[in-house]
Computed example of a mutant assay.
Amino acid sequence: MRMYHDNVAKNRAEKRSHVLMTCELEAGDTCKTVKLRNLSAHGAMVEDDTLPLVGTQVLFKKGDIRATGTVVWARIKRAGIKFDTLVPADQIKRHVPKARPKPQPKSDRPGLKAKPLTAAERRAAEHYFWGDPLIPPTR
């Protein structure tokens, strides 16, 4: 099963936008709010405890997007929907949040300064690492 999923990802015509928001799925008489995990002009991946079976015709609704499609795969709590027609890119972009810049780490700690150890500091360090740390070094 994993090999099939990897091949599908390699052969996708368009990159999907990863999102975490809700959308609605209508299947027959049932309309359900589910989590939307990714979205493209070709389809979407949704997540919920109970999802329609593979082959089910659905109506996908997110804001101004209304797209009919088919559930083409289903795994534990996730399903892939292939839209019957392409959703225009401008509609997709309205529902995909803009990427935020990654925060740059900030450190107010001063940098390490390399200064030579005094003879007493060197003896103390050597005694600590190579001798018994409970016996103080002689000066």
Score class of each variant (00 low, 15 high):
Lys106Tyr: 12
Asn38Asp: 15
Pro52Asp: 04
Pro52Leu: 03
Pro116His: 13
Ile65Val: 09
Lys62Trp: 01
Val72Asp: 00
Ala67Gln: 00
Ala120Tyr: 11
Ser40Gly: 07
Gln91Ala: 13
Ala89Met: 14
Lys106Ala: 11
Ser40Ala: 09
Gly55Arg: 03
Asp84Ala: 14
Trp73Glu: 03
Lys102Phe: 13
Lys115Trp: 09
Leu36Pro: 00
Phe83Cys: 07
Asp29Trp: 11
Gly111His: 11
Ser107Thr: 14
Val96Ile: 10
Arg37Asn: 10
Ala119Thr: 13
Ala44Glu: 02
Asn38Trp: 05
Met45Ile: 07
Pro52Val: 02
Gly80Phe: 00
Asp90Trp: 09
Gly111Ala: 13
Gln91Thr: 05
Ile76Arg: 08
Lys113Val: 14
Trp73Arg: 12
Asp84Arg: 04
Thr56Ile: 04
Asp84Phe: 05
Arg75Gly: 06
Asp90His: 10
Thr85Tyr: 13
Lys113Cys: 12
Arg122Gly: 05
Pro103Lys: 08
Leu51Gln: 05
Thr118Ile: 04
Leu59Asp: 06
Arg109Ile: 12
Val87Lys: 01
Lys61Ile: 06
Asp90Tyr: 10
Gln57His: 15
Thr50Pro: 05
Trp73Pro: 00
Leu39Ala: 03
Arg78Leu: 05
Ala114Trp: 13
Cys31Glu: 15
Met45Ser: 11
Val34Tyr: 04
Lys82Trp: 06
Gln57Ser: 15
Gln104Arg: 14
Leu39Phe: 06
Gly55Phe: 02
Lys115Gly: 08
Ala27Gly: 06
Glu47Lys: 04
Leu112Ile: 12
Lys93Gln: 14
Asp108Pro: 02
Ala79Tyr: 02
Pro88Ala: 11
Leu51Arg: 01
Ala99Tyr: 07
Gly69Lys: 00
Ala41Glu: 09
Asp29Cys: 12
Val54Pro: 06
Val46Asn: 01
Ala120Asp: 12
Thr50Arg: 13
Asp64Phe: 06
Ala27His: 10
Lys35Pro: 01
Pro103Phe: 07
Ala74Met: 09
Val71Ala: 00
Pro110His: 08
Lys82Asn: 06
Lys102Asn: 08
Lys77Ile: 07
Gly28Val: 05
Thr56Gln: 06
Gly55Ala: 04
Arg122Trp: 10
Arg94Asn: 12
Thr33Val: 13
Gly69Phe: 00
Lys35Asn: 11
Leu51Trp: 00
Cys31Gln: 15
Leu36Thr: 02
Ile92Arg: 02
Ala119Leu: 12
Val54Phe: 05
Glu121Met: 08
Arg122His: 12
Asp29His: 15
Ala41Pro: 01
Lys98Tyr: 11
Asp108Met: 10
Gly111Arg: 13
Ala89Pro: 07
His95Ser: 03
Pro110Arg: 08
Lys102Ala: 14
Met45Phe: 12
Pro52Ile: 01
Arg100His: 10
Lys62His: 08
